[in-house]
Design a protein around this nucleic acid. Structure first.
Lengths: 180, 180
DNA sequence: AGCGCCATGTAAGTGGTTACATGATTGT
DNA sequence: ACAATCATGTAACCACTTACATGGCGCT
């Protein structure tokens, strides 16, 4: 699933501009799907070119025209097709874990720093989800509730694991009694 | 952190071929860092070009030469620099969650299918980690133990969450008694 | 007879990131 | 005064994916 398809999905919730969609990528979607303007704007152009969305241009003074996109019937059909995948992927790309694999090569102090920063990022995401829940819980679809809960559960599990197992990485290297 | 750097890290554990590294990407690294031959072989070439690894070519009959790479001092220095990032990222890209956001647009049956396939994939990864632990637990660094435990914890949390919350997506839309 | 393992690579394509470019309005 | 928000986009770049290309060996 690419950024185009996700944008299309977001538009099922009502017409919106690229700027609006970006905000959604930064809030409710932040914990599992990143996208910047550099992918969103071209995505919307392409959707428009293919007739999957329509674009209403609202002139504004001193700002670029606000372009409000709305999903078309073709767009809806396309989205539904995209949602048919019976086993959509869930990929993790973790520089954090890759780094931790090599913790034994790093100064103990630095390992601490990395662990602390991970916990801070957990807190950040937890806050994000809490904010978005406080804000939009009432008008959410069951899907969005499921997804927010999923994010919360994963972040909690991550934080707990890191706290409870950081000792694995911080204990002094035991004296190798029976070695060389 | 790119594939090059991770390959370099893997080589700190001893000399290996591209084929060997691929197996590691498919086992202990599978749950957080994907890489195919199409990235591994070019990565090793590039590392070799930059003097970060050396390559010993072992002729074989009927097969292409086996190329065994070994990290150099320059390579080690480079790796250590790369590991200095105080806040390495941990990114999730989930077509699964994106799909679930739009569950209300999908046939209930299909939502079930998707949920089931996710649980199956959890089981698959859990098995992978268990296998690799059984196989290599004894010679693992603390880092590798931490990372495997992390994967297990995340997979367990995911499976549990999906099982316990799938009802959010499967209940019939409740009759809206006090609406409209 | 056929499958899976061993073993390497390339080339074209994709999809996304980053940096750049512009600039008024609103709030502190 | 200064920062944040609103609002759009492009162009160069990068890293990775996918498909292709080759082919013997060992097991069942």
């Amino acid at each position: 699933m690419d950024v185009k398809t996700v944008c299309l999905g977001m538009l099922t919730d009502g017409a919106a501009s690229g700027y609006d969609l970006k905000k959604q990528f930064e809030s409710s979607f932040a914990h599992f799907f990143a996208a910047g303007y550099g992918s969103i704007y071209p995505a919307l152009s392409s959707l428009s070119d293919h007739g999957l969305v329509t674009c209403e241009q609202i002139p504004q003074e001193g700002k670029p025209d606000r372009k409000v996109y709305e999903i078309t019937d073709d767009g809806m059909a396309f989205l539904l097709k995209a949602l048919e995948d019976p086993a959509p992927c869930h990929k993790i790309r973790s520089d954090f874990l890759a780094t931790m694999c090599f913790a034994h090569l790093m100064p103990g102090e630095h390992v601490q720093t990395v662990l602390d920063s991970r916990i801070k990022e957990c807190a950040h995401y937890a806050q994000l989800i809490a904010d978005v829940e406080a804000d939009r819980m009432h008008d959410w679809t069951p899907g969005m509730r499921f997804v927010a809960g999923f994010g919360k559960a994963m972040i909690d599990a991550m934080e707990t694991y890191v706290e409870e197992n950081r000792h694995l990485l911080t204990e002094e290297t035991p004296i190798r009694s029976a070695t060389a």
